[in-house]
């Protein structure tokens, strides 16, 4: 395996809820070490795409390769091996409310390794330190703010040093400053640890500051309407709507919503 090979490859993926097709025959690749954003208006299937990529939903057709291994076909031990390659930050953080932050981060280490307790606590503390939460080890999730909960969720996702981190709407519900801080955390982790990020979002400022490449899901075509770097798409996309979305011009959302049921 060489490093030029894409770390994630989505091949001809289709998804639907009952008869309601979300997207059809979508293929794209995520390169190792990049920050990759999945973009789209409300209802375009961003979260559905993410849930397929992390194996929560079985696809109707197509497959997802992570590090060259087929997540959709794997089961048992080999599936567990693939799951260990990535960590996920859920939209709400999804921290375990009955555990303090240190225990939240330690959980996977305790379950999957035989390291002594003090070593696990130290590793967990270093992860919290990495996301700027040193000193909050023994706070429970209800005692911290939304932005801190998201950062703690990133720390938890990183407990086993995965090579990919999926972030679902990292900026949702955060003020611009906290959101920018979170972006900085993402960039720092991406640069220092070489973690690949897949971010689902619709926050333009965040996309410009962190994303190397984006794909844009489009509910009109049930597919990808654009792929490239954010600036490229803003300046040179063939699609009128995509250009307007990136320039944040009025009417962009309206064009996107036109075909909504």
């Amino acid at each position: 395996m060489t490093s030029s090979e894409p770390i994630i490859r989505v091949e001809n993926l289709s998804a639907s809820y009952g008869d309601d097709v979300v997207f059809n025959d979508v293929s794209f690749e995520v390169q190792r070490g990049e920050v990759f954003a999945i973009l789209g208006g409300s209802g375009s299937g961003k979260s559905t795409m993410l849930k397929h990529m992390i194996g929560l939903y079985p696809p109707r057709a197509g497959r997802i390769l992570i590090d060259g291994l087929d997540l959709t076909a794997a089961s048992g031990k080999s599936r567990l091996g693939i799951l260990r390659k990535f960590g996920v930050m859920y939209q709400s953080g999804a921290l375990f409310g009955s555990l303090d932050l240190l225990a939240n981060v330690s959980l996977a280490l305790e379950e999957f390794t035989d390291l002594p307790r003090h070593a696990i606590a130290r590793i967990a503390a270093s992860k919290l330190e990495l996301v700027g939460l040193a000193g909050f080890e023994h706070h429970v999730p209800s005692e911290i703010s939304g932005g801190m909960a998201k950062r703690a969720a990133i720390a938890r996702a990183m407990a086993l040093d995965p090579s990919i981190l999926f972030l679902d709407e990292p900026s949702a519900g955060l003020d611009p400053i906290t959101s920018a801080e979170l972006d900085e955390t993402v960039l720092r982790l991406s640069r220092t640890l070489g973690v690949t990020f897949v971010v689902v979002t619709h926050e333009l400022p965040s996309i410009y500051s962190i994303a190397d490449r984006v794909i844009m899901l489009d509910k009109r075509t049930k597919g990808i309407s654009a792929i490239g770097s954010p600036r490229e798409l803003r300046d040179r996309s063939d699609d009128e709507w995509v250009r307007r979305f990136f320039r944040r011009e009025a009417g962009a959302e309206a064009v996107g919503e036109e075909s909504s049921p």
């Binding site: 225990a103 130290r122 590793i123 503390a125 270093s126 990495l130 040193a134 023994h138 070489g194």
Partner: peptide, 20 residues
């Protein structure tokens, strides 16, 4: 080198107390 960074990140953290 890349792994040295990990070692360094652990040094920043003093031994952590267990939960109270």
């Amino acid at each position: 080198d890349e792994y040295q960074r990990l070692v360094a990140s652990l040094r920043v953290v003093e031994a952590v107390d267990g939960p109270p």
